[in-house]
Structure formats: C-alpha cells, structure tokens
Computed example of a mutant assay.
Amino acid sequence: MQLFLPIADVPVNVFLILAMGAAVGFVSGMFGIGGGFLMTPLLIFIGISPAVAVASVSSHMAASSFSGALSYWRRRAIDPALSMVLLSGGVIGTALGVWIFTLLRSVGQLDLIIALSYVALLTTVGTLMLLEGARAILRTRKGPQPLTRRARAQGWILGLPLKMRFKRSKIYLSVIPVVAIGLFIGFLGAIMGVGGGFLLIPILIYVLRVPTSTVIGTSMTLTLATMIFATILHATTNHLVDAVLALVLMVGGVIGAQFGARAGQRIRGEHLRLLLGLLILSVGIRFAVELVIKPAELFSIRDLGSGG
C-alpha cells in the first residue's frame, strides 16, 4: 500500500514505515533510549532526504518522549533544577543547530555533513559501548567484585565556579558544565535528529555523577523540550516537518515499544549494552559504506532554497 509523503515528496510503502517505527520502538523499549539515532538513518536509507528525515524525526522524538517524561515526573524521578539548567543550554544549542542546518542546506552541503556526522558519532559510540559491554560480561564471569565507594564528579569539574545545589540528585557542582552539556545535546538533536539520550545518560552518570534514580527522567525531559523546540524551528524556518511521516512512525513506535520493554526485562544489563553497541556500530558502518560506494544515479536535482 503506497502512501505519498507531501513534504518528503516521495511515495512510500505504509507497511514499511510502520514496520520501521515498530522496530525502532522495540529497540527504544528494550534499551530505554529514544531511537532517533536509528530512525533517521533508516529513513535516509529508503530514499527520504536527510533534511526531511531529521526534521520529521524531531517531532516523532518529542511525541515518543512525552509519555516517558510524564511517567518519571509522577514518580518524582526528575530533578527539576538540573532539567532547567540543562534546558537553558539545550535551547541555545537547538537554535544554533537549526541555524547551521539552514545554512548548510542553502549551500548544498547538508546531506554530506549529516552523513559524516552519523559515521563519526555512531562508529565511535558503538565501538565504546561494544567494548564496555564485553568488559562487563567478562567481569560478571569472574564473579562478584568488592564494592567500592561511589566516586565524585571529575576533579576539574569540582573546581569550576558558579556552583549550585541540585537537591533531588543530591549533588553540588558548577552550572557551567551542565549548560555546556545541554548546549551540545540540543545542537546535536537539531543537526542530526537525535534525542541524545544515548549520549546524555552516560555523560550525566560518569562525568557529573548524577544518580541513576533521576538521570533517565531528567534526560527525557531535556529530549522532550529540545525536540519540541527543534520541530517548531524546522517547521517555521525550513518547512521540512512531514506530519504524515511522523504520525505513521509514532503508531508503529508505540506498538513496538510495548514488546521491546518486555524483551528488555528478560536480558541481562551487560548483554543489553553489548547488543546496543553492536547495533549502533552496524548503522555507522552502513553509513560509511553509503558514502564510498558509487551511486546508481551520478546526478540529482534538489531544491536548496530555505523554503519547503
């Protein structure tokens, strides 16, 4: 069954899009991540332009993170102060990212930059997660390790000025690295169409030492806010948000997430990290292959203007 996407300006198989949404939703439910880093490449692989894929996935990410953020808020598993400081940087980073996005599109370099960014990000993160997951499995096989005292934030962070107490997370540190992290995640989301949770959560845990009890909910809050802002900017500035595409992806994502959450509860944490690292690395390698193989058509015509 063919469905015409008005903004992407291409016909697609509606069952294929539903299946992609369900597959990414399954992965999101299993690993507890947004899935934008998978959805955007998959859309590009089936022929949707990178610009439309990034803009449309932003709206999909905003919708999919809403229920999760609401659930964590009801359980008081979100640090409001930390969320607001992250968001102050996230809004600036998102606005900057959309501006760079528009500029690159106007000069015809957006597709290449998106592809290179995905290759660099996914291969690096995938390799690191793969190695960390393998080390965790080896540690588990060696038997229980002696408990160690919970480490504090990195030493150089503790020496920064403008300190603030985040009561819900029970940490006291400078707002400078928190704002910088929010800015980076917001910028990344606007350029690449990713919520950034798969990067933000490890950074908050291992760099700022935020407790895991509040880190996931806080991450979802930032994803929700930055993706809503990115969607609005992409829709008003570049006119690239395909609502039909986003809606079909949401339907598939909701269905897949239910099964993924159940599957994730049956798999050990270290095995989940190993599988996720392998998945991320595979997508990064596929993107790299796409960059070096000879295309079927050597020339293409595309509107490079700022309008839709």
Rank of each mutant, 00 (worst) to 15 (best):
V251T: 12
M192N: 09
R262N: 06
L43R: 12
V52K: 03
L160Y: 00
G133A: 05
R139F: 12
M20C: 14
K142T: 04
F166S: 00
V248R: 14
S300T: 15
P146T: 08
M39P: 05
L278Y: 06
L130V: 02
S59P: 02
I201D: 00
V178H: 00
A23K: 11
I100T: 10
V178P: 01
L131Y: 05
M84H: 06
L116Q: 07
G197D: 07
R139N: 11
W99K: 09
L70G: 13
F37P: 06
L281M: 08
A257D: 08
S306A: 10
R149L: 15
A63K: 11
A77Y: 04
W73S: 12
T221H: 06
L233T: 11
L131K: 06
R152D: 15
I201H: 01
M220L: 15
G89H: 00
T123N: 11
A19K: 08
N13L: 05
R74N: 07
P161M: 02
S49T: 11
R150T: 13
A230Q: 10
A51G: 08
G93F: 04
F287S: 09
G25N: 10
A22I: 08
I201N: 03
R152P: 15
A77G: 02
L5I: 08
G36H: 02
Q154L: 15
G159F: 04
L204R: 01
L274F: 13
V210A: 05
L247C: 13
P6G: 12
L183R: 01
Q265C: 07
T231N: 05
A77Q: 09
I203Y: 00
A136V: 03
R149F: 13
A190C: 07
L278F: 13
R76L: 06
R268A: 13
L130S: 12
T214S: 09
M84L: 15
I171W: 02
A180L: 13
T140R: 14
T218I: 00
I203W: 00
A235E: 11
F259W: 10
L43M: 12
S306Y: 09
S71P: 01
H60V: 12
A230W: 10
R74D: 03
V54K: 10
V283R: 13
T237N: 07
I232E: 04
L96D: 10
L275W: 09
I44W: 00
L70C: 14
I201Y: 01
I100L: 12
A55N: 06
L147P: 13
L110E: 04
V215N: 01
R262T: 02
W156P: 09
A95I: 15
T212N: 10
I78P: 00
M20A: 13
M84A: 15
L291D: 04
G196R: 01
S174C: 01
A235N: 09
G256Q: 04
